[in-house]
């Protein structure tokens, strides 16, 4: 069962019809529907191409949040071996919105850290929909420290609507936890590469995505505020999210022009969820190539260049 986004409705109809025809043919062997069904397939493909080659920023935001999009755990499972999750912030709790642990990327031992949104109701609740609490950021700080001490490169996978806005999270110092995580990203003397695989939501994303190299999937987004939040503040109307998404310049393509992201990873036609394996493989290749760019650099040099990268950000603007 495919989950369709609202702008994919016409596509859903065509694909649904093709599926129906084939189901009828299976029930009744005399029917020959293949010609008709493949015509529908062709039409669907054309429509898909049409929709996805010119996705508006708001539609990209919807694709970035697609429930079937591969999530952190899918990447960890497919791209790493010997993944050994490490839990807890040693202060208060273990935050399941943040996954992290030791793993091998190829032969290389690394530390992998990321936001996990969950894939069904139960796991979404368990992972708090990928919205981390202070414990999540403090766990990340602890893991980055560990990686730093043992010379392991750090790979972060970013996919969060933002840090969790809750009473307990605020009481336990959500802001301080995020600030410390960003600070740690700027301190560690090991390679740090980040991939925004879905949503890069505000401070909750910066805390992991402050890296030597940042890549984004083609239809992922990275923004200071959600389009809905921005619309309700600046337009006083949360229904103006299309306009807000446009104005915020949150697409991977715009962010590459601004120098915020170094690479844009192509997604299969119709978005990452239409061919999860191909997406995951492409992300793996990008991680390998980003890590190899940083190969052989001393810790001091890495830190110096990472800081310079951020100090220099903002010198490039976008033409209208």
């Amino acid at each position: 069962m495919t989950n369709y986004l609202d702008f994919e409705k016409p596509l859903a109809e065509i694909e649904g019809k093709a599926e129906e025809l084939r189901a009828m043919a299976r029930a009744n062997e005399e029917m020959d529907v293949e010609a008709e069904a493949s015509a529908l397939d062709k039409k669907a493909r054309e429509l898909l191409e049409d929709l996805y080659t010119k996705l508006t920023p708001w539609r990209k935001a919807q694709v970035a949040r697609h429930p079937d999009r591969p999530h952190c755990r899918d990447y960890i499972k497919a791209l790493f071996t010997e993944y050994t999750p490490l839990a807890g912030d040693r202060n208060f709790a273990d935050d399941h919105a943040v996954l992290g642990g030791l793993a091998r990327f190829g032969d290389q031992p690394v530390m992998v850290i990321g936001h996990e949104k969950g894939h069904d109701t139960r796991s979404r609740i368990q992972h708090n929909f990928g919205m981390a609490r202070p414990e999540g950021y403090r766990k990340a700080v602890r893991l980055m420290d560990l990686a730093d001490r043992f010379g392991l490169p750090v790979i972060t996978l970013v996919d969060t609507a933002g840090a969790y806005p809750g009473k307990g999270a605020e009481e336990r110092g959500q802001s301080e936890a995020i600030a410390r995580s960003t600070e740690k990203c700027l301190q560690i003397g090991v390679p740090l590469v980040s991939v925004i695989i879905g949503e890069g939501g505000s401070g909750g994303a910066v805390a992991f995505a402050t890296a030597d190299r940042v890549a984004m999937l083609e239809h992922s987004i990275y923004s200071v505020i959600s389009p809905e939040g921005c619309a309700s503040i600046l337009w006083k109307d949360s229904e103006k999210m299309r306009e807000a998404a446009e104005a915020l310049r949150l697409t991977a393509q715009d962010l590459e022009k601004l120098g915020v992201t170094d690479r844009v990873i192509r997604e299969p036609l119709g978005g990452a969820h239409r061919d999860r394996d191909a997406t995951i493989t492409a992300v793996g290749k990008t991680i390998a190539s980003m890590l190899s760019e940083l190969d052989g650099r001393t810790g001091k040099k890495l830190v110096k260049e990472r800081r310079r990268r951020y100090l220099e950000l903002g010198s490039k603007g976008l033409a209208a």
């Binding site: 600030a179 960003t182 600070e183 990203c185 700027l186 505000s202 401070g203 910066v206 402050t210 990275y222 923004s223 200071v224 104005a247 915020l248 310049r249 949150l250 962010l255 601004l258 915020v260 800081r307 951020y310 100090l311 950000l313 903002g314």
Partner: peptide, 14 residues
Amino acid sequence: EGILSLMQMPRTTV
């Protein structure tokens, strides 16, 4: 200032 305002978090941390 969109993402560039967000990037002031790491910049000011430096």
